[in-house]
Computed example of a mutant assay.
Amino acid sequence: MMSVLCVGAGGFVGAVSRYGLGLIPLASGLPLVTLLINFTGSVVIGAVAEAASLAPTALPREAVLFLKVGLCGGFTTFSTFSLETLELIEGGQWAVAGAYALASVVLCVAGVLAGKLLARTLVPAA
């Protein structure tokens, strides 16, 4: 039961944070806020996953569930990214849609790598 509460609490924090950041007005043809949310979530999930694997006792299981499954799951916006990409395509903005999709995938994979490298630097191996 504690695991479910940890995931739910993390999901709440992540979703509310995503909503709040989504209110930031950025004038651009590219959905930059969603891209930045996905990148940030990728860095966090990479760091948490790496920290948990480097020093399994440093992060309690509940903390990993809160951060990785709950917070990052509620915060990142892949479904929003997909909808925005399709809307760009439907609006005839093929090049912008392609650039957005490519940037999202490349940046978010790089974000996970950055998070893992950050954790390796900051978290001593057990």
Rank of each mutant, 00 (worst) to 15 (best):
R18T: 03
R18D: 03
Y19D: 11
G20M: 11
G20W: 12
G20C: 11
L21M: 10
L21Y: 00
L21C: 04
G22C: 08
G22Y: 05
G22K: 06
G22T: 08
L23A: 12
L23F: 05
L23K: 13
L23Q: 14
I24K: 06
I24G: 05
P25Q: 14
P25R: 12
P25N: 13
L26S: 11
L26I: 15
A27H: 15
A27E: 15
A27W: 14
S28W: 07
G29Q: 11
G29A: 10
G29E: 12
G29N: 10
G29W: 06
L30A: 10
L30W: 12
L30K: 06
P31D: 00
L32M: 08
V33P: 01
T34F: 03
T34Y: 04
T34L: 05
T34I: 06
L36M: 15
L36K: 09
L36H: 12
L36F: 15
L36T: 13
I37N: 02
F39V: 13
T40E: 11
T40V: 15
G41A: 09
S42T: 06
S42I: 05
V44F: 03
V44T: 07
I45R: 01
I45V: 14
I45S: 02
I45Y: 01
G46E: 04
V48K: 01
V48S: 03
A51M: 08
A51F: 07
A52V: 12
S53G: 09
L54C: 05
L54H: 06
A55Q: 15
A55E: 12
P56S: 07
P56L: 07
P56R: 08
P56Y: 09
A58Q: 12
A58R: 13
A58W: 14
A58I: 11
A58P: 08
L59S: 05
P60F: 12
